[in-house]
Structure formats: structure tokens, C-alpha cells
Amino acid sequence: MLEIKNLNASINNKEILKGLNISIKPGELHAIMGPNGSGKSTLANVLSGKEGYKISGELNFLGKNLNEIPIDERAQKGIFLAFQYPTEIPGVNTSNFLRTSLNKVRKAQGKKEIDALSFIKLVKEKTNELGMDEKMLSRQLNVGFSGGEKKKNEILQMKILDPNLIILDETDSGLDIDALKIVADGVNSSRDSKKSFLVITHYQRLLNFIKPDFVHVLANGKIVKSGTKELAMQLEKTGYKGIN
């Protein structure tokens, strides 16, 4: 699914990622843990194609070199990023935004646009599945949403767009336990043999609810240690300083 080889990324002359390697197969869920400022969000941004980074190394997604593909096309090909800080877009209706987005993805896949009625049905179904309030759909995108609502909205979008590589950037941060469960349920119910997940988190708490196949520790712009769930448990005890 995703092959990252010797990835270097810098911005404003600051080197952030320094020779990062990860390989994710279909169906796998990888967790990336690391201290603040270690480059986790940068990795998420670079994978989704955000501009402004100087990049070297290899990025392969579904056998294609990602380097030349712009951000919107990557999204259409099935890369989804649940943002650490989802941005507010005033005046834009959440449901309309989601439909526009879905239709862009469908169009790229050669499917025809979803009609208004089927969309409403789909979006209501997913909203209820996630135990979310339907009212959110008619509000302006992320405007005045609580931290938890914003994160749930990201998970809703993930559900609707049905991507195949999902990057969650600290989706668990700042959530109370109920919201955390909703997010975890959303992820767990989406897991199948074709989808891959890259779950970025600062705390191992989330991994009590989502079972990773692999855990990587990111420090100083590279993966310093990889392992299974036990690694996360160990981190919890010793802190990031205990690794190296």
C-alpha cells in the first residue's frame, strides 16, 4: 500500500524528517508515536502532499510514485488525513462540503455523482453509526465545533469518503473517554483487508481501543524503534527518554 524510503523533508530551511522508512501493507494498522515536535504532523502533511516542503526520498502509494501527484489527486486516489487541528471554514455547510468532496472522489473513480437523496441517506446512516448529532451536518464546517466535535467530524468524513490509506494525526488528543470510544469505534468498524491505517498518537491510551499491528517510535525525524503493541506499553512506563 505505502512504501516510504529514506524520506527527508525540510521547510523554511529546517530539516524535520531525516531518513524515515516505513512500509505498510493492505489491511495493516501502524501506530506512530513520538514526542511533541518530533515530526509526526510533518509526516502526515508530506504524505498528503502539502506544498512548501523540500523533499527527497521515495514515496510509493499503490505502486505509484507520489512525488509528482498534487494533493487533491492524492485525496481522490484514496489518501485521507484526519487533521490534528481541523480548520474552520465559515459560511460553508458541513453536509454540502462533504457531498462536494465525495463527488470529487467518485468522479476520479469513474463513478457518477451521488444524488442529493442518496447522499442524505448515507450521511445520516454514518452519523448515527458514530453516535453523532445530525444537527452538526447543517452547521458551518467546523465553525464553533468543540474539539471533540471537530475530531468526530473528521471520522465521519473518513467513513463517507471510504479511502484506502487513512492517516489519523493525533485524533485522540483532547478527547474525553466517550469521544475517544466513538473515534476508536469508527476506526475499528472501518478496518478491512484492503484499508491501511497510519495512526499518529502521542499517548498509548488510544491503543487500548485500537489494536495496532505495528508500533513505531519517531524521534528526531526518523523511526528509532519499531515493534508491536508491547512497545507502546513499554513507552508508557519509561517515557520517550527510555527509548534510544
Binding site: 502539502k50 498534487p70 485525496a75 488525513l81 460553508v92 462536494t100 470529487k104 468524513q157 469518503l161
Partner: peptide, 20 residues
Amino acid sequence: FYCNQRGLNQEEAVSLIVNG
């Protein structure tokens, strides 16, 4: 960035944000 990541190209994103 948010709009682009959801599959909208630059012009569509600008149009959406400005219309909002």
C-alpha cells in the same frame, strides 16, 4: 489545504471558501 485534502483542486477550494 483542508479542501485540497478532501479532493478539491485549488480553484474549487478558492471558490468554496470565498462563497462561504
